[in-house]
């Protein structure tokens, strides 16, 4: 087990390195630059800015400098948000996204598993159809529609919830629903089909035949086997959900990290693009390692070697 983890960690570092390198060079291939605006800065100003941030050097030199600094844990300054370090931006915004994201993960997981199981147990009945219908909608409707509709109904028409910010506990409701809806629906559908698969297995019939109660058979045998694919899905899902969503944060005015993934690119804020990308890559890789370990806990038959 330990050997496996060490191996995975080395692989993780290599993965992150490759992601960082690719991003760095792709980023410089995209036309445009951080200091362009409708009103062009004077040549002297532009030169001063480029010199200040080392952008006047050849890309390979910049790459080397960046990587050396990164090794020392320095992600560099933001080019657009003058005076701010990339690490400051990431770590002041991340907690906000994590707060909403973790709630969304819990909601999605709890509701998804329960709804999926209920649907499977009531296969073909009205309840199943209702759950399938709504989970299909949950997958099909994009989050900006969900946000806008929630904002219109709960915020504007009924005036139950604030339409922006995170100032009161109630203001968490809309973003959490908006973030959780897709993964919840996905988990519900996944859970339903896996559960149906498991329920049809011979060992389930055997368990019942040996006198095990329906509930016991369900929890002891069915759920554990059926949940494995959900665990696989959870890894990347958690990484993405915790780092926030551009759409949800923009529409509901939430100061999370998600928007920075997009705005850093449109602004050509190179260090911030690198910072957010490497951070997400790190989180994804870590989550995948964690998922593998959780696998082993859920199903001892799985051999991690």
């Amino acid at each position: 087990m330990l050997k496996y983890i060490v191996k995975r960690l080395i692989l993780a570092v290599v993965t992150i390195y490759i992601v960082a390198t690719l991003t760095f060079f792709l980023m410089y291939l995209v036309p445009g630059g951080p200091f362009l605006s409708e009103k062009a800065p004077s040549a002297a100003t532009l030169a001063a800015l480029e010199a200040k941030y080392g952008l006047d050097q050849p890309v390979t030199v910049q790459y080397k400098n960046y990587m050396l600094r990164l090794l020392q844990g320095d992600m560099g300054p933001s080019l657009k948000q003058r005076g701010k370090e990339v690490s400051d931006i990431i770590f002041t915004r991340l907690p906000v996204s994590v707060k909403i994201g973790s709630l969304a993960v819990v909601v999605a997981l709890a509701c998804g598993v329960v709804l999926g199981s209920i649907a499977a147990l009531n296969r073909g009945k009205a309840l199943d159809n209702i759950i399938v219908f709504f989970s299909t909608c949950g997958i099909a409707i994009p989050s900006f529609v969900v946000c806008t509709v929630l904002m219109f109904i709960l915020g504007e028409k009924l005036r139950l919830l604030p339409t922006f910010g995170l100032n009161t506990p109630s203001s968490y409701i809309m973003p959490v629903i908006a973030l959780a809806l897709y993964p919840m629906s996905y988990i519900a559908r996944l859970m339903r089909s896996c559960m149906l698969d498991v329920l049809g297995q011979d060992y389930m019939r055997t368990a019942r035949a040996k006198g095990l109660s329906q509930t016991k058979a369900l929890f002891k045998h069915a759920l554990r086997n059926a949940i494995l694919p959900v665990v696989t899905y959870l890894g990347p899902m958690i990484a993405y959900t915790l780092t926030g969503s551009f759409v949800v944060e923009t529409i509901l005015t939430i100061p999370g990290l998600g928007a920075s993934f997009v705005t850093s690119i449109t602004a050509r804020d190179y260090p911030l693009i690198m910072g957010t990308t490497i951070f997400l890559a790190f989180l994804l890789v870590t989550m995948n390692v964690v998922v593998d370990i959780v696998y082993k806990l859920v199903d001892p038959r799985i051999n991690l070697q």
Binding site: F91, L94, P95, S102, L166, V231, V294
Partner: peptide
């Protein structure tokens, strides 16, 4: 065992929440 699965998952989530929350959290309450 089934409990341990759930616990493992919850742990995983709460660990991440904890990680993020520790770093100079900006609270806009």
């Amino acid at each position: 065992k089934k409990l341990s699965i759930l616990l493992a998952l919850l742990l995983l989530v709460s660990v991440l929440v904890g990680c993020g929350g520790g770093n100079g959290t900006v609270d806009n309450n």
